[in-house]
């Protein structure tokens, strides 16, 4: 396998909106450290699940990959080219291979644009097809994602479609450019339960067919395990654990991963109780040392002072005192 995407020391700091009085009394600009030094890589044909709670920065990572957000620092190396150093036409050409599927299928389609045009437009933008060819490709893609009869769906407007159908359109729009890498940002969390499986299986079918690589962003560990080859767990802007899905899920080393796992509802409840204290800290001033230490039941003195590095070979964890448990 060869690596298709590598992210190195990626950071995104958002300046904090301040009131007049705050600006007056403090000179320093404050930042929300949404993503704070994140590194990972994705192999060709691999799905990396990125999990974490809301506000942990996982969506911001995805948005940076597809160019919707400029990194504060760090590199995004896609097919041996650093996307952050590219500009203009070259950048646009590279981004054709990097597409995104958003969470909200109700907001991600243009309410005044026909379904078919949503698929044609990307092809025309990149000059990949003439009008009539584009229409043909769009029809094929509609059929491919299960919107049949395609000619009927082609002329409809988004409001005439259900949430599940809209998400199929969003997938079709991303796939029509034949990308090599797709960021899927919570693609099923707003879809009806009984329709989720269909959407997930559809995405997985593209992986097999095109050898597609994917960053699958989700808060749902069950989904993350199902679709992912590997899994990365984020907490307060940092990756705290990353490794092969089964290893991370069955032998979690980070107390946060274990706490998440013990809270996931399941038909087969495991006897796993890892406590977690309080609430997530404010990303404006993350705690010193390990960011998780105020909530960690195992925290020791070192955790409050020294920030742990992500260490390990294939299963990497950022913890001074990694757990040694096995769940089966």
């Amino acid at each position: 396998m060869s690596e298709i995407l590598r992210v190195e020391n990626l950071k995104k700091y958002f300046p904090v909106q301040k009131s007049f009085i705050e600006v007056f009394f403090s000179k320093e600009l404050e930042f929300i450290r949404a993503v704070d030094d994140v590194s990972f890589s994705v192999e060709e044909g691999e799905i990396l699940s990125l999990v974490g709670e809301s506000g942990c920065g996982k969506t911001t990572v995805g948005r940076m990959l597809v160019g919707l957000e400029e990194p504060t620092s760090g590199k995004i190396i896609f097919k041996n080219k650093d996307l952050t150093s590219l500009e203009g036409e070259e950048r646009r050409a590279m981004h054709r291979h990097l597409q995104i599927i958003f969470q909200d299928p109700y907001a991600s389609l243009n309410p005044k644009m026909k379904i078919g045009d949503h698929l044609i437009d990307p092809l025309l933008i990149h000059g990949l097809a003439s009008n009539s060819e584009a229409k043909e490709i769009a029809m094929e893609m509609l059929e491919r994602v299960g919107l049949v009869p395609a000619d009927q769906f082609f002329n409809r407007l988004p409001y005439q479609l259900s949430g599940g159908q809209r998400q199929r359109v969003a997938i079709a729009r991303a796939m029509v450019l034949k990308p090599e890498f797709v960021v899927a940002d919570e693609p099923v969390s707003m879809i009806d339960v009984s329709l989720r499986a269909a959407i997930l299986n559809l995405l997985l079918s593209f992986k097999d067919e095109y050898r597609l690589s994917m960053l699958f962003i989700t808060h749902d560990l069950s989904v993350a395990r199902l679709v992912g080859d590997r899994i990365a767990v984020m907490y307060l802007g940092k990756i705290v654990e990353i490794g092969d899905v089964d290893e991370v899920v069955q032998e979690p080393k980070h107390p946060y991963t274990a706490a998440l796992l013990s809270a996931v509802p399941s038909f087969e409840k495991k006897d796993l109780r890892i406590d977690i204290k309080g609430d997530v800290a404010n990303p404006r001033n993350p705690p010193p040392g390990c960011r998780y230490h105020p909530r960690c039941p195992f925290a020791k003195k070192e955790c409050k002072e020294v920030e742990p590095e992500l260490t390990g070979d294939r299963h990497r964890v950022a913890c001074h005192f990694p757990l040694e448990i096995k769940i089966d």
Partner: peptide, 23 residues
Amino acid sequence: KGLIESVPDIWLARKIKTMPGFP
């Protein structure tokens, strides 16, 4: 039955089945 089989589950490492149709 269809619902149970279509829900991803963290501990039941299994494939999920698509439920046909829609509500």
